[in-house]
C-alpha cells in the first residue's frame, strides 16, 4: 500500500521525471552509437546512474584516452560531494544501512526535492527519500532501454532538452527563503556564466563555490 507520504513523494517527483524522458532518449541513442560495447554502456545506468556523466562517458570513449574520459566524468560528478556535505546533517539520526544505501541514489533531482524536506522526522524523511529514489532509479532503467531502442525517433527540434533547466530553476526559487540564499544563487549563476569556457563543466564548480562563499559572508554579516 502506498502511504500518504509515498504519494506526496511521487507527486513531487513527477514534474522532475517528465524532463528526464527526452534526456533518457538522447542518452540511449548515444549509447547505441558509442564505441563502448552496448552492454557496458547500458550498465552505466545501473551503476554510475548520473545522466550528464553517462552522456560524457559514452560519447567521449573512443575520442579520448580512458584517463581523460574518467577525469571528465569525475569533474562533472564533483558537485555530488557538495550535495553529500549538505545532506550530512539530515543523516545524523539515520541507521547505518540507509547511510550506505542512500548515496547511490543521490542524483540532482533527489537532492533538490529532499533538501526541501529536511524538516521531516527521521523515519518519514527516509521513507520520502527511498520512494523518490526507487521512482527515479527504475524510471531511468526503463528510459535508457527505450532510448537505446527508439532514441532516433524523438525529434530534437521540440527543444525538450530545455525542460530540466526550467525545473531546477523552479526548485532554486523554492529554496530562496532568506537573503543569503538569494545572494548565493545569484552569485553562483553569474560566476558560472562568466566561467563557462572552462573544460568539463568545471565552471559549475567554480560558480557553486563562489555562491556558497558569498552566501556564507552574507550570513556572517547579517548577525
Amino acid at each position: 500500500m502506498l502511504s500518504l507520504l509515498d504519494r506526496q513523494a511521487i507527486r513531487d517527483g513527477f514534474p522532475l521525471l517528465l524532463p528526464a524522458i527526452p534526456f533518457g532518449f538522447v542518452l540511449g541513442l548515444a549509447m547505441s552509437e558509442s564505441a563502448m560495447p552496448i552492454g557496458v554502456a547500458y550498465s552505466s545506468s545501473l551503476f554510475l546512474y548520473a545522466g550528464a556523466a553517462q552522456l560524457a562517458l559514452v560519447t567521449l570513449v573512443g575520442a579520448a584516452s580512458a584517463w581523460a574520459v574518467a577525469v571528465a566524468v569525475m569533474v562533472i560528478n564533483l558537485r555530488h560531494v557538495m550535495y553529500s556535505a549538505a545532506m550530512a546533517p539530515s543523516f545524523e539520526e539515520q541507521p547505518r544501512w540507509f547511510r550506505i544505501l542512500a548515496p547511490m541514489f543521490l542524483i540532482d533531482q533527489v537532492f533538490a526535492l529532499t533538501s526541501l524536506h529536511t524538516d521531516l522526522e527521521p523515519e518519514r524523511f527516509r521513507r520520502y527519500y527511498l520512494t523518490l529514489a526507487a521512482m527515479f532509479y527504475s524510471a531511468w532503467q526503463v528510459l535508457s532501454v527505450l532510448g537505446i531502442l527508439f532514441g532516433a525517433l524523438v525529434p530534437t527540434s521540440w527543444g525538450l532538452g530545455f525542460a530540466p533547466a526550467l525545473m531546477f530553476a523552479g526548485i532554486v526559487v523554492m529554496m530562496l527563503t532568506n537573503r543569503p540564499a538569494v545572494i548565493a544563487a545569484v552569485v553562483a549563476a553569474a560566476v558560472c556564466f562568466a566561467t563557462l569556457g572552462l573544460p568539463n563543466r568545471s565552471g559549475l564548480l567554480v560558480g557553486a563555490l563562489a555562491g556558497i562563499s558569498a552566501g556564507f559572508l552574507a550570513e556572517s554579516r547579517s548577525r
Binding site: 549538505a86 533538501s115 548565493a184 560558480g207
Partner: peptide, 25 residues
Amino acid sequence: VMRALRNVGPAVLAALVVTLVANPE
C-alpha cells in the same frame, strides 16, 4: 560549517541551471 552548507543547494543548482541552458559542450 553549517552556515556554509545551508547555501549549497541554491548555489549548486543555480550554477547547474546556467550550465544546462548554455550547453558548453
